[in-house]
Design a protein around this nucleic acid. Structure first.
Lengths: 150, 150
DNA sequence: TTTTATTTGTTACAGCTGTAACAATTGAAT
DNA sequence: ATTCAATTGTTACAGCTGTAACAAATAAAA
């Protein structure tokens, strides 16, 4: 029994994700010179304020080495500053600088515009269907740790 | 205005794709020792019979270097054989060997089982919603060449 | 015919990624 | 108190990826 790759869910899901990512990457990559891990780190800190690297990884579904490298890069841009915890000196508290926050707000605005444009393209019905489907995948497959336990 | 990353479509789409891919990768990676490009190449040839490398890339949304390397690897396993076209000697016709076909059928069966299991997990309504949403993304964003023109 | 452009596929190179090992620190166990 | 385990974050290494340059063949243009 043959398999139709173009109708196979893992393939379609990856393709859709790549199509959307490629469009959105124009905003943070071409426009602001960020990688995807850097963008996610910026977005997480912009949303939550001060956090640790481990917490960023947990919230943004990124491997700790990705977070580590993204933090380094954002620090060099002076978009982020580290503060070692007084009581537990393994921990570093990370927060955006004023410049980091300014850039975050600009990118967040573009992100909202992007999502709004996507919703217009797909139409409300299809967009809602997509939301529902993705939420279901996350609910049923996303319970364990992400990324897979070390 | 803050942005909720965990509610942002490009993020959710990528996360869902990774969750599903990671599960399915167990089948072709851990079970058969294939990379994703190799699996896609095998699946495309299994579905269509003889094809050229360019056609495989177009149908499976893969960059030509990925296809080139996957073909090399499958050839070394003796899962695939090349035949240079007589009339246009730039072109190579690729086809699975008997061993390649045997492995394709085994993996296609597991793939069907995987999709069926996924449908059971999500439930028909959510599964259909996902299908609808993904089809819409492909319809509205997937018209241009993939990957982006050389 | 000769020159130029296009197509098909491969490869060198540089960049990104996760695994595994690691240093440093803290917590638990004995 | 000492030993062992767990946590936090970094880094060396090997593998995968796309870009760009390339060789070979064919098609188009002159």
């Amino acid at each position: 029994m043959a398999l139709a790759l173009e109708a196979f869910i893992p393939y379609k899901l990856n393709r859709a994700a790549e199509l959307v990512s490629r469009r959105f990457a124009v905003i943070y990559k071409d426009h602001a010179g960020l990688t995807r891990p850097e963008w996610r780190t910026l977005a997480t800190l912009g949303q939550y304020g001060t956090m640790t690297a481990t917490a960023i990884g947990a919230h943004s579904s990124m491997h700790k080495t990705k977070v580590s490298r993204a933090v380094q890069s954002l620090e060099q841009r002076n978009w982020l500053k580290r503060t070692t915890d007084e009581k537990d000196r393994r921990v570093e508290h990370l927060a955006l600088t004023r410049e980091g926050e300014r850039n975050y707000r600009a990118l967040a605005k573009l992100a909202h515009a992007f999502e709004s444009g996507l919703k217009d393209m797909l139409g409300t019905r299809d967009f809602d269907a997509l939301q529902r489907g993705l939420a279901s995948v996350d609910k049923h497959l996303g319970t364990e740790a992400f990324p897979p336990a070390n």
